[in-house]
């Protein structure tokens, strides 16, 4: 789902970069106004955590593999605005060091993974905040991200919409299910071992 450079044309990358920049701007404003300095190392290390778990990949069938995204997990643990910045920074470094996603398509990747995963995922989770609903929202946001990814590829005249949608969604169903199960198990474990994370202020 990390779109590399060259797969989006210039108008799509400009639009998606603009949307992501607006979200980053809002989040930074929000975090600077209710700033708690103790939060900065926590955000930094969570960002490293997301960076690391995005590298763990499960093999699905021959050659292809899916990896965790962790955006819903971080949004549930730290709050949507913090989680969004954390996941965005991890995506930026992924594009630089591992070429998972390009530089001019960074906006599109942040939109597909971080905006959808953190803001929309947190809203879905907030309706009825339990671990099951977090797992459900992890599955849903993965599918919405795949959908957006196909729409972006279609908008830049790279591939027809119908075939891309079928291919992307059938591929991401597996990833979404793994993401949901792992999110559920991790949240259960964290709340059982360290309940004070639940009382953390969610920004």
């Amino acid at each position: 789902m990390h779109i590399p450079d060259g797969f989006l044309d210039i108008k799509t990358s400009l639009i998606t970069n603009l949307i992501s920049a607006i979200f980053i701007f809002i989040s930074i404003k929000k975090i600077n106004t209710n700033l708690n300095p103790q939060r900065i190392p926590l955000m930094g290390i969570s960002s490293t955590f997301v960076f690391t778990i995005q590298l763990l990949s499960f093999p699905v069938f021959s050659g292809t593999s899916v990896h965790l995204l962790g955006s819903v997990l971080v949004a549930v643990l730290l709050g949507p605005f913090c989680g969004f910045l954390v996941v965005s920074c991890s995506l930026i470094l992924h594009s630089l060091f591992f070429q998972h996603g390009g530089v001019l398509t960074l906006g599109a990747n942040i939109l597909n993974i971080a905006v959808v995963g953190c803001f929309l995922g947190y809203l879905i989770y907030k309706i009825y905040p339990t671990n099951i609903s977090a797992a459900f929202s992890a599955f849903l946001t993965t599918m919405i991200g795949a959908f957006l990814c196909s729409v972006e590829l279609f908008l830049s005249n790279k591939s027809p919409i119908k075939q891309t949608l079928i291919a992307m969604s059938s591929f991401h169903i597996i990833g979404g299910i793994i993401e949901a199960v792992v999110t559920f198990l991790i949240l259960n474990l964290i709340y059982k071992v360290k309940p004070e994370i639940k009382e953390l202020e969610k920004i």
Binding site: P41, L42, G44, I45, S46, T48, F49, T52, I53, L56, L68, L77, V181, V182, L185, I186, L189, I190, V193, K194, I197
Partner: peptide, 15 residues
């Protein structure tokens, strides 16, 4: 899942 969860807890304590 347990490894990843423990990783978060350790990172939280490290923070």
């Amino acid at each position: 899942a347990n490894i990843v969860g423990m990783l978060f807890i350790k990172s939280f304590e490290r923070a």
